[in-house]
Amino acid sequence: MAINLSKGQKIDLTKTNPGLSKITVGLGWDTNKYDGGKDFDLDVSVFLANANGKVDKETNFIYFNNKQNENASVVHTGDNRTGEGDGDDEQIQIDLQNIPADVDKVAFTITIYEAEARSQNFGQVSRSYVRIVNDANSEELIRFDLGEDFSIETGVVVGELYRNGAEWKFNAIGSGYKDGLSGLTRDYGLQ
């Protein structure tokens, strides 16, 4: 049975699930009806950050054009350009035991592709969530529903896995960015 998290809640992931190593992080969303005439294309990006919260090298920025880090411990399974249908819209496969030692945080974000040009924002997105599934038995361990707290934002930090000694924890963040992917890449130390 999955644990439903609230914004700001932190939970042990590996300590409460001994032996957990391979997980899938699924992210999903729906778009509200609107008359803008342009399709919505939401994208998941993952930032592998050091202890200072910065990404040391471009290969630690995972997205639809860079689908994995150097040792393939974090892999983006592909871009969903419509968000149609039930279930996860995009997924990230993670091998917790092989994440490089210099990575302290794995942050999951969702941005709207060409949001400004298309006059789109997260106020037009509903039922967005992140969930973590144990690959060994397909059990959903954690779920965080973001709610409808956004209006002008074009990017959201959904949550992050972070090291706590030898264990991994998850932090349900749900923090919006009005300057989308450019704001996220700037704050994570990328140009």
Rank of each mutant, 00 (worst) to 15 (best):
L5T: 11
T16D: 13
G8R: 09
L27R: 07
G85W: 10
G189A: 00
F40G: 07
G85I: 00
F170V: 03
F40E: 12
I99K: 00
G83M: 00
D12H: 14
D39P: 13
F47P: 08
A115V: 09
G174E: 09
I94A: 04
V106Q: 01
V130W: 05
V130I: 13
Q120S: 05
G83V: 05
W168D: 12
A101K: 13
E116R: 11
L96I: 08
G176D: 08
I11L: 12
N4R: 10
D43T: 00
G36P: 10
S175W: 10
Y177E: 06
G85C: 09
F47E: 03
Y177C: 05
E153W: 00
T31P: 02
D88I: 00
G165N: 12
G147F: 07
N164V: 12
R131F: 00
Y188N: 06
K57Q: 09
Q191I: 04
T111M: 04
D135F: 03
E114M: 11
N60L: 08
Q124L: 14
A117M: 10
S151E: 10
D149I: 09
N60R: 11
N121C: 12
R186H: 15
F108P: 03
Y63L: 00
S175F: 15
G53N: 07
L13Q: 03
E140C: 04
E140L: 03
N65E: 02
E116M: 10
K169R: 13
A115H: 09
G26K: 10
T82I: 01
E148M: 13
G36S: 03
G37A: 12
E140M: 13
D56Y: 00
S128Y: 06
D187V: 08
I94L: 07
S126C: 11
E140Q: 15
L42R: 01
T77E: 11
A101P: 12
A51K: 15
V25T: 06
D39T: 11
A101D: 14
N71A: 01
A49K: 14
A101Q: 15
N17W: 08
N71Q: 11
D43N: 09
W168N: 07
R143H: 11
Y129A: 02
G174P: 05
Y113M: 03
K15H: 10
T77K: 12
T154Y: 09
G8L: 02
G8D: 12
L146A: 01
D179C: 03
V25Y: 03
V106R: 00
A172W: 09
V106H: 04
A51F: 04
E160V: 02
D145R: 09
G28M: 07
N50K: 08
K169L: 06
I110Y: 02
P18K: 04
S138F: 02
G147I: 05
S126Y: 02
Q91C: 12
Y34G: 13
S21E: 13
G8I: 06
N80C: 08
S73F: 06
K10D: 06
T14D: 02
S73P: 09
D86T: 07
G147T: 01
F170Y: 14
E140R: 02
A166N: 14
G37P: 05
D30W: 07
K67E: 11
L141N: 11
G36Q: 04
F122W: 05
F122M: 05
E70H: 13
E139K: 15
Q191D: 09
E116D: 15
A49M: 14
Q124T: 06
F47W: 00
G78Q: 06
E140V: 14
S128A: 10
D102G: 09
S175N: 15
L96Q: 12
R127P: 00
Q124S: 10
K15R: 15
